[in-house]
C-alpha cells in the first residue's frame, strides 16, 4: 500500500498537470470546439461521475514527456474507461445494438491491427515501432483506422465527460503515430507527440467530412495487414 501512496506522491504532475488534470480539461474543451460544440452543459453530479473514468485514463496514458508511472494501463482498461460516458448514454437511450455494432466494428478492427502488430495489450507497447515491414504496415493502418473511427465512436456531446472521452481516444491513436515519427526523425519526444496530435486532429476533421465508407475502407486495409502479420508470425 505504501508503494501505491508513494507512486501517487511522485506522479502528481502527471495526474494534475500533464497529461491528466488541467491540460486534459483544456485540450478536451479545445477538441470539442474544433468538433463544433460552442456551449458546454453545466456540470452536475452525474456528469462529474461520468468525467472521472476518462480523466483517469488520460492521466495514465504513456505520453511523452510526462514522467513514468508505475501502474500503467492496457488498451482494454483504457478503452473501457474512455467509453464510460458513451456506455452510459447507450444504456440510458436504449441505443439500437445493430447501429452500435456498425459504429464500433472499425474500431475493433483497428484495435486488432494495433495489438497484433505490438504483440501486447499494453499501451506502452504502442510506443515501440515494430521491426518487420508487415507489422509496421498494420501498426500505421491500425492507427489510421482508429483515428478515422473516433467521430462515429464518440459523437460530439455538449458535456465535459464526452469531450474527455473523445480526447482520450484520440490520444490512444497518437501513440503509434508518435512512435513512427520518433523513428523517422530525431525530434524531441514532446515535438513528436505534438506532431502526432496535429496529424490526428487533421484526420478527425477530415473523417467528419468524409463518407462513412472511408472508415470501413481504413479498417479493411488494417485487417488485411493484420492477416499478413498473423500469417507471418504463424
Amino acid at each position: 500500500m505504501s508503494d501505491l501512496l508513494g507512486t501517487f506522491g511522485q506522479g502528481w504532475p502527471r495526474l494534475l498537470l500533464y497529461p491528466g488534470g488541467l491540460s486534459a480539461v483544456l485540450a478536451a474543451l479545445l477538441l470539442a470546439r474544433v468538433r463544433g460544440i460552442r456551449q458546454m452543459e453545466p456540470l452536475t453530479a452525474p456528469r462529474l461521475i461520468d468525467l472521472l473514468p476518462p480523466l483517469s485514463a488520460i492521466a495514465l496514458l504513456p505520453l511523452a514527456p510526462a514522467a513514468a508511472f508505475a501502474y500503467s494501463l492496457d488498451l482494454l482498461t483504457a478503452v473501457t474507461l474512455l467509453l464510460w460516458p458513451e456506455l452510459r448514454r447507450a444504456a440510458a437511450e436504449r441505443c439500437d445494438p445493430n447501429q452500435l455494432a456498425a459504429q464500433y466494428l472499425p474500431t475493433f478492427l483497428a484495435a486488432l491491427a494495433l495489438v497484433s502488430a505490438a504483440g501486447t495489450f499494453e499501451l506502452s507497447g504502442l510506443l515501440r515501432w515494430p521491426p518487420s515491414p508487415m507489422r509496421q504496415a498494420a501498426f500505421l493502418l491500425g492507427a489510421g483506422a482508429w483515428i478515422v473511427a473516433i467521430p462515429r465512436l464518440a459523437p460530439p456531446q455538449p458535456h465535459l465527460a464526452a469531450a474527455c472521452s473523445a480526447l482520450g481516444l484520440m490520444l490512444v491513436g497518437i501513440l503509434p503515430l508518435s512512435a513512427a515519427i520518433n523513428t523517422i526523425t530525431v525530434a524531441p519526444a514532446w515535438l513528436s507527440v505534438a506532431a502526432a496530435m496535429a496529424i490526428a486532429l487533421a484526420g478527425i476533421a477530415a473523417s467528419c467530412r468524409l463518407p462513412v465508407q472511408w472508415g470501413y475502407g481504413w479498417a479493411i486495409a488494417a485487417l488485411v495487414a493484420t492477416s499478413g502479420v498473423l500469417l507471418d508470425s504463424g
Binding site: 501517487f8 500503467s72 494501463l73 492496457d74 482494454l76
Partner: peptide
C-alpha cells in the same frame, strides 16, 4: 513478458482522488 495490466485498486484510488 507483460501482455496486459489491470491496476484495479490503483485505478480506484486514482478515481477517488480525482473525484
Amino acid at each position: 513478458r507483460t501482455v496486459a495490466t489491470a491496476p484495479g485498486l490503483a485505478l480506484s484510488a486514482l478515481m477517488g482522488l480525482f473525484g
